[in-house]
Write a protein that binds this DNA or RNA. Structure first.
Lengths: 139, 139
DNA sequence: TTACAGGTTTGTACTGATTACAATTTTAAT
DNA sequence: ATTAAAATTGTAATCAGTACAAACCTGTAA
Protein backbone atom coordinates (compact mmCIF):
# COMPACT_ATOMS: atom_id res chain seq x y z
CA UNK A 1 0.00 0.00 0.00
CA UNK A 2 1.40 3.37 -0.97
CA UNK A 3 0.72 6.76 0.54
CA UNK A 4 -1.80 7.88 -2.10
CA UNK A 5 -3.87 4.73 -1.69
CA UNK A 6 -3.79 5.11 2.06
CA UNK A 7 -4.95 8.72 1.87
CA UNK A 8 -7.91 7.85 -0.35
CA UNK A 9 -8.77 4.90 1.89
CA UNK A 10 -9.37 7.44 4.63
CA UNK A 11 -11.20 9.91 2.41
CA UNK A 12 -8.34 12.38 2.16
CA UNK A 13 -7.69 14.09 -1.16
CA UNK A 14 -4.04 13.75 -2.15
CA UNK A 15 -1.70 16.69 -2.60
CA UNK A 16 2.05 16.95 -2.81
CA UNK A 17 2.25 17.91 0.84
CA UNK A 18 -0.21 15.31 2.12
CA UNK A 19 1.45 12.52 0.17
CA UNK A 20 4.90 13.50 1.45
CA UNK A 21 3.71 13.66 5.06
CA UNK A 22 1.85 10.35 4.85
CA UNK A 23 4.82 8.74 3.14
CA UNK A 24 7.05 10.00 5.91
CA UNK A 25 4.78 8.52 8.56
CA UNK A 26 4.62 5.21 6.71
CA UNK A 27 8.38 4.86 6.28
CA UNK A 28 9.52 6.30 9.60
CA UNK A 29 8.18 4.43 12.59
CA UNK A 30 9.82 6.85 14.99
CA UNK A 31 6.59 8.50 16.22
CA UNK A 32 7.78 11.91 15.04
CA UNK A 33 6.64 15.28 16.28
CA UNK A 34 5.15 17.83 13.87
CA UNK A 35 8.45 19.68 13.93
CA UNK A 36 10.42 16.56 13.07
CA UNK A 37 8.15 15.91 10.10
CA UNK A 38 8.60 19.51 8.98
CA UNK A 39 12.39 19.42 9.31
CA UNK A 40 12.59 16.15 7.40
CA UNK A 41 10.50 17.40 4.47
CA UNK A 42 11.33 21.07 4.11
CA UNK A 43 14.37 20.33 1.94
CA UNK A 44 12.45 18.32 -0.63
CA UNK A 45 9.45 20.68 -0.49
CA UNK A 46 11.07 24.10 0.00
CA UNK A 47 7.78 25.96 0.16
CA UNK A 48 6.42 23.70 2.89
CA UNK A 49 4.93 25.62 5.79
CA UNK A 50 4.94 24.43 9.36
CA UNK A 51 1.26 25.35 9.55
CA UNK A 52 0.56 22.89 6.74
CA UNK A 53 2.32 20.14 8.65
CA UNK A 54 0.23 20.86 11.73
CA UNK A 55 -2.99 21.11 9.73
CA UNK A 56 -2.27 17.96 7.77
CA UNK A 57 -1.36 15.86 10.78
CA UNK A 58 -4.54 17.06 12.47
CA UNK A 59 -6.50 16.09 9.36
CA UNK A 60 -4.94 12.62 9.40
CA UNK A 61 -5.87 12.17 13.04
CA UNK A 62 -9.42 13.42 12.48
CA UNK A 63 -9.84 10.96 9.61
CA UNK A 64 -8.22 8.24 11.71
CA UNK A 65 -5.39 7.81 9.23
CA UNK A 66 -2.88 8.46 12.02
CA UNK A 67 -2.71 8.40 15.80
CA UNK A 68 -1.83 11.29 18.06
CA UNK A 69 0.34 10.16 20.98
CA UNK A 70 0.40 12.21 24.17
CA UNK A 71 2.79 9.89 25.98
CA UNK A 72 5.25 12.76 26.40
CA UNK A 73 4.08 15.80 28.37
CA UNK A 74 6.19 18.16 26.28
CA UNK A 75 5.60 17.04 22.72
CA UNK A 76 2.73 15.60 20.75
CA UNK A 77 3.85 12.72 18.57
CA UNK A 78 2.22 11.08 15.57
CA UNK A 79 2.02 7.47 14.49
CA UNK A 80 1.10 6.28 11.01
CA UNK A 81 0.41 2.81 12.34
CA UNK A 82 -3.21 2.87 13.47
CA UNK A 83 -3.39 -0.80 14.42
CA UNK A 84 -4.00 -1.59 18.08
CA UNK A 85 -0.63 -1.54 19.83
CA UNK A 86 1.04 -0.01 22.88
CA UNK A 87 3.94 2.42 23.32
CA UNK A 88 7.00 2.64 25.51
CA UNK A 89 8.73 5.98 26.20
CA UNK A 90 12.33 5.79 27.34
CA UNK A 91 13.17 8.55 29.78
CA UNK A 92 16.84 8.18 28.92
CA UNK A 93 16.90 8.47 25.12
CA UNK A 94 13.42 9.91 24.65
CA UNK A 95 12.49 7.46 21.92
CA UNK A 96 9.09 5.80 21.72
CA UNK A 97 9.09 2.07 21.00
CA UNK A 98 6.15 0.00 19.81
CA UNK A 99 4.86 -2.83 21.96
CA UNK A 100 2.20 -5.41 21.13
CA UNK A 101 -1.16 -4.57 22.66
CA UNK A 102 -1.09 -6.16 26.06
CA UNK A 103 -4.63 -5.51 27.23
CA UNK A 104 -7.29 -8.14 27.37
CA UNK A 105 -8.27 -9.15 23.86
CA UNK A 106 -11.89 -8.93 24.87
CA UNK A 107 -11.59 -5.34 25.95
CA UNK A 108 -10.23 -4.15 22.63
CA UNK A 109 -13.45 -5.14 20.92
CA UNK A 110 -15.72 -3.75 23.59
CA UNK A 111 -17.42 -0.51 22.75
CA UNK A 112 -18.21 0.12 26.39
CA UNK A 113 -16.29 0.12 29.64
CA UNK A 114 -18.28 0.87 32.79
CA UNK A 115 -20.98 2.46 30.66
CA UNK A 116 -18.64 4.80 28.81
CA UNK A 117 -18.48 4.59 25.01
CA UNK A 118 -14.84 3.91 24.18
CA UNK A 119 -13.49 5.27 20.92
CA UNK A 120 -9.76 5.21 21.56
CA UNK A 121 -7.41 3.02 23.58
CA UNK A 122 -3.95 4.25 24.57
CA UNK A 123 -1.61 2.08 26.59
CA UNK A 124 1.62 3.87 27.49
CA UNK A 125 4.60 2.54 29.41
CA UNK A 126 7.57 4.55 30.60
CA UNK A 127 10.99 3.61 31.89
CA UNK A 128 14.40 2.73 30.45
CA UNK A 129 14.46 0.92 27.14
CA UNK A 130 16.45 -2.22 26.45
CA UNK A 131 19.11 -0.45 24.37
CA UNK A 132 19.74 2.17 27.06
CA UNK A 133 19.93 -0.50 29.75
CA UNK A 134 22.50 -2.43 27.72
CA UNK A 135 24.62 0.65 27.15
CA UNK A 136 24.46 1.36 30.87
CA UNK A 137 25.70 -2.12 31.75
CA UNK A 138 28.81 -1.68 29.61
CA UNK A 139 30.11 1.04 31.90
CA UNK B 1 -4.51 9.52 56.31
CA UNK B 2 -4.19 13.28 56.25
CA UNK B 3 -2.20 15.46 53.92
CA UNK B 4 0.72 16.05 56.30
CA UNK B 5 1.15 12.34 56.91
CA UNK B 6 1.02 11.65 53.23
CA UNK B 7 3.67 14.26 52.49
CA UNK B 8 6.07 12.84 55.07
CA UNK B 9 5.40 9.32 53.80
CA UNK B 10 6.87 10.46 50.50
CA UNK B 11 9.76 12.36 52.07
CA UNK B 12 8.29 15.81 51.45
CA UNK B 13 8.68 18.48 54.11
CA UNK B 14 5.33 20.07 54.87
CA UNK B 15 4.56 23.74 54.32
CA UNK B 16 1.32 25.68 54.18
CA UNK B 17 1.34 25.55 50.40
CA UNK B 18 2.32 21.90 50.07
CA UNK B 19 -0.27 20.81 52.61
CA UNK B 20 -2.99 22.80 50.87
CA UNK B 21 -2.10 21.40 47.45
CA UNK B 22 -1.88 17.82 48.70
CA UNK B 23 -5.14 18.25 50.58
CA UNK B 24 -6.77 19.53 47.41
CA UNK B 25 -5.56 16.51 45.44
CA UNK B 26 -6.75 14.14 48.15
CA UNK B 27 -10.23 15.62 48.39
CA UNK B 28 -10.85 16.42 44.72
CA UNK B 29 -10.66 13.40 42.49
CA UNK B 30 -11.21 15.51 39.39
CA UNK B 31 -7.70 15.14 37.97
CA UNK B 32 -7.18 18.91 38.07
CA UNK B 33 -4.72 20.94 36.04
CA UNK B 34 -2.13 23.11 37.76
CA UNK B 35 -4.23 26.13 36.95
CA UNK B 36 -7.34 24.58 38.49
CA UNK B 37 -5.42 23.87 41.68
CA UNK B 38 -4.15 27.43 41.70
CA UNK B 39 -7.60 28.94 41.15
CA UNK B 40 -9.11 26.78 43.89
CA UNK B 41 -6.50 27.74 46.49
CA UNK B 42 -5.60 31.34 45.74
CA UNK B 43 -8.51 32.65 47.80
CA UNK B 44 -7.52 30.82 50.97
CA UNK B 45 -3.79 31.48 50.38
CA UNK B 46 -3.79 34.96 48.84
CA UNK B 47 -0.02 35.07 48.40
CA UNK B 48 0.05 31.77 46.52
CA UNK B 49 2.05 31.93 43.34
CA UNK B 50 1.30 29.91 40.24
CA UNK B 51 4.98 29.01 40.08
CA UNK B 52 4.68 27.40 43.49
CA UNK B 53 1.78 25.30 42.31
CA UNK B 54 3.74 24.12 39.29
CA UNK B 55 6.87 23.46 41.36
CA UNK B 56 4.96 21.66 44.08
CA UNK B 57 3.03 19.42 41.71
CA UNK B 58 6.30 18.58 39.97
CA UNK B 59 7.82 17.76 43.36
CA UNK B 60 4.90 15.48 44.19
CA UNK B 61 5.29 13.66 40.88
CA UNK B 62 9.06 13.31 41.31
CA UNK B 63 8.52 11.86 44.78
CA UNK B 64 5.74 9.65 43.40
CA UNK B 65 3.18 11.23 45.71
CA UNK B 66 1.03 12.11 42.67
CA UNK B 67 0.61 11.08 39.05
CA UNK B 68 0.97 13.29 36.01
CA UNK B 69 -1.65 12.49 33.38
CA UNK B 70 -1.01 13.38 29.75
CA UNK B 71 -4.29 11.96 28.49
CA UNK B 72 -5.23 15.38 27.13
CA UNK B 73 -2.98 16.89 24.47
CA UNK B 74 -3.64 20.43 25.69
CA UNK B 75 -3.37 20.21 29.45
CA UNK B 76 -1.35 18.24 31.95
CA UNK B 77 -3.51 16.90 34.75
CA UNK B 78 -2.60 15.59 38.18
CA UNK B 79 -3.95 12.72 40.23
CA UNK B 80 -3.41 12.29 43.95
CA UNK B 81 -4.43 8.64 43.69
CA UNK B 82 -1.23 6.79 42.83
CA UNK B 83 -2.74 3.32 42.94
CA UNK B 84 -2.79 1.36 39.70
CA UNK B 85 -5.88 2.40 37.77
CA UNK B 86 -6.92 3.60 34.32
CA UNK B 87 -8.48 6.82 33.03
CA UNK B 88 -11.25 7.76 30.66
CA UNK B 89 -11.35 11.17 28.97
CA UNK B 90 -14.75 12.29 27.70
CA UNK B 91 -14.43 14.34 24.53
CA UNK B 92 -17.84 15.89 25.20
CA UNK B 93 -17.52 17.20 28.77
CA UNK B 94 -13.72 17.03 29.05
CA UNK B 95 -13.81 15.28 32.41
CA UNK B 96 -11.49 12.43 33.29
CA UNK B 97 -13.08 9.44 35.01
CA UNK B 98 -11.29 6.71 36.91
CA UNK B 99 -11.53 3.13 35.72
CA UNK B 100 -10.23 0.01 37.41
CA UNK B 101 -6.96 -1.20 35.93
CA UNK B 102 -7.93 -3.58 33.17
CA UNK B 103 -4.54 -4.87 32.06
CA UNK B 104 -3.29 -8.29 32.84
CA UNK B 105 -2.57 -8.56 36.53
CA UNK B 106 0.69 -10.26 35.72
CA UNK B 107 1.89 -7.33 33.69
CA UNK B 108 1.42 -4.83 36.46
CA UNK B 109 3.99 -6.63 38.56
CA UNK B 110 6.43 -7.17 35.73
CA UNK B 111 9.41 -4.92 35.77
CA UNK B 112 10.17 -5.76 32.15
CA UNK B 113 8.23 -5.82 28.92
CA UNK B 114 10.13 -6.92 25.82
CA UNK B 115 13.39 -6.18 27.61
CA UNK B 116 12.43 -2.62 28.58
CA UNK B 117 12.47 -1.68 32.27
CA UNK B 118 8.95 -0.44 33.03
CA UNK B 119 8.57 2.23 35.69
CA UNK B 120 5.15 3.66 34.85
CA UNK B 121 1.96 2.26 33.36
CA UNK B 122 -0.68 4.57 31.86
CA UNK B 123 -3.86 3.20 30.36
CA UNK B 124 -6.01 5.89 28.79
CA UNK B 125 -9.40 5.53 27.13
CA UNK B 126 -11.24 8.23 25.23
CA UNK B 127 -14.80 8.58 24.02
CA UNK B 128 -18.14 9.72 25.40
CA UNK B 129 -18.79 9.12 29.07
CA UNK B 130 -21.91 7.52 30.46
CA UNK B 131 -23.38 10.77 31.78
CA UNK B 132 -22.96 12.55 28.44
CA UNK B 133 -24.47 9.60 26.58
CA UNK B 134 -27.48 9.65 28.88
CA UNK B 135 -27.98 13.38 28.43
CA UNK B 136 -27.78 12.88 24.69
CA UNK B 137 -30.47 10.21 24.72
CA UNK B 138 -32.93 12.56 26.42
CA UNK B 139 -33.03 14.81 23.37
C1' DT C 1 18.96 38.15 70.82
C1' DT C 2 21.28 38.14 66.59
C1' DA C 3 23.16 36.29 62.63
C1' DC C 4 23.68 32.92 59.41
C1' DA C 5 22.47 29.02 56.12
C1' DG C 6 19.34 26.20 53.93
C1' DG C 7 15.37 25.52 51.90
C1' DT C 8 10.88 27.63 50.15
C1' DT C 9 8.06 30.92 47.93
C1' DT C 10 7.14 34.64 44.91
C1' DG C 11 6.76 37.71 40.70
C1' DT C 12 8.38 38.73 36.35
C1' DA C 13 10.15 37.73 32.13
C1' DC C 14 10.76 34.37 28.91
C1' DT C 15 10.21 30.15 26.00
C1' DG C 16 8.44 27.31 22.55
C1' DA C 17 4.77 24.40 20.73
C1' DT C 18 0.58 25.21 18.65
C1' DT C 19 -3.15 28.03 16.51
C1' DA C 20 -5.76 32.04 14.27
C1' DC C 21 -6.16 34.41 10.44
C1' DA C 22 -5.94 36.58 6.12
C1' DA C 23 -3.62 36.44 1.78
C1' DT C 24 -2.11 33.64 -1.91
C1' DT C 25 -2.00 29.64 -4.70
C1' DT C 26 -3.80 25.46 -6.55
C1' DT C 27 -7.45 22.43 -8.08
C1' DA C 28 -11.53 21.02 -10.33
C1' DA C 29 -15.61 21.93 -12.71
C1' DT C 30 -18.28 24.47 -15.83
C1' DA D 1 -10.87 30.61 -19.77
C1' DT D 2 -13.59 31.62 -15.55
C1' DT D 3 -14.82 30.96 -11.35
C1' DA D 4 -15.65 28.85 -6.87
C1' DA D 5 -13.92 25.91 -3.54
C1' DA D 6 -10.20 23.89 -1.34
C1' DA D 7 -5.43 23.87 0.11
C1' DT D 8 -1.28 26.17 1.37
C1' DT D 9 1.47 29.75 3.22
C1' DG D 10 3.58 33.33 6.45
C1' DT D 11 2.96 36.13 10.19
C1' DA D 12 1.24 37.28 14.41
C1' DA D 13 -0.73 35.81 18.46
C1' DT D 14 -1.73 32.55 22.34
C1' DC D 15 -0.87 30.36 26.44
C1' DA D 16 0.84 26.49 29.42
C1' DG D 17 4.84 25.89 31.49
C1' DT D 18 9.71 27.33 33.11
C1' DA D 19 13.99 30.08 34.43
C1' DC D 20 15.65 33.04 37.40
C1' DA D 21 16.69 36.12 40.98
C1' DA D 22 14.83 38.47 44.89
C1' DA D 23 12.39 37.95 49.13
C1' DC D 24 10.97 35.17 52.78
C1' DC D 25 10.91 31.60 56.31
C1' DT D 26 12.77 28.31 59.73
C1' DG D 27 15.89 26.38 62.55
C1' DT D 28 20.42 26.47 64.71
C1' DA D 29 24.35 28.13 66.87
C1' DA D 30 27.00 31.66 68.66
Amino acid sequence: MNAVERLSDYGIKPSVQRIAIMEYLMTHRTHPTADEVYMALCDSIPTLSKTTVYNTLKLFVDQQAALMLTIDDKLVRFDGDTSLHSHFLCRRCGRVHDLPYSGKKREARELQIEGHAVEEIHHYYKGICRECKEKENLN
